[in-house]
């Protein structure tokens, strides 16, 4: 995880524990954040991360999460994953 003040870069391969830590970290900082970028060389481990990202976007629609906007993600482990969220 890298954080330069505006942009937060995260890995996808967070375990449940990582996600909880990440959630705690981001809650107080959500207001200043402009963008969350994803290290796409990593792959998802838990769908809770996807939920968290969606929740962040829902809470603060201005937040940019390009990964989420792609609405799609392919990996050799899970095949093609699509997601849909209203708004």
């Amino acid at each position: 995880m890298e954080f330069d003040g505006d942009v937060l870069k995260i890995e996808l391969d967070m375990t449940m524990d990582d996600i909880r830590t990440f959630e705690e970290f981001i809650r107080p900082r959500l207001e200043y954040l402009e963008m969350i970028s994803i290290d796409e060389t990593t792959t998802l481990v838990s769908s809770a991360l996807l939920s968290l990202l969606v929740s962040l976007k829902k809470t603060r629609p201005e937040l940019q999460i390009p990964f989420l906007d792609k609405k799609e993600f392919s990996s050799s482990a899970f095949g093609t994953v699509h997601w849909i969220a209203n708004d």
């Binding site: 996600i19 959630e23 769908s47 969606v54 809470t59 050799s76 899970f78 095949g79 093609t80 994953v81």
Partner: peptide, 28 residues
């Protein structure tokens, strides 16, 4: 995926709540 030649999935995230009600432990 291990058993199949192709797997395609569609996650319905519409019921994921905003951060006030979000909890990573809870499947939303």
């Amino acid at each position: 995926q291990e058993k199949a030649s192709s797997v395609e999935s569609f996650f319905d995230m519409s019921s994921v709540k905003s951060l006030e009600e979000f909890s990573a432990d809870e499947n939303q």
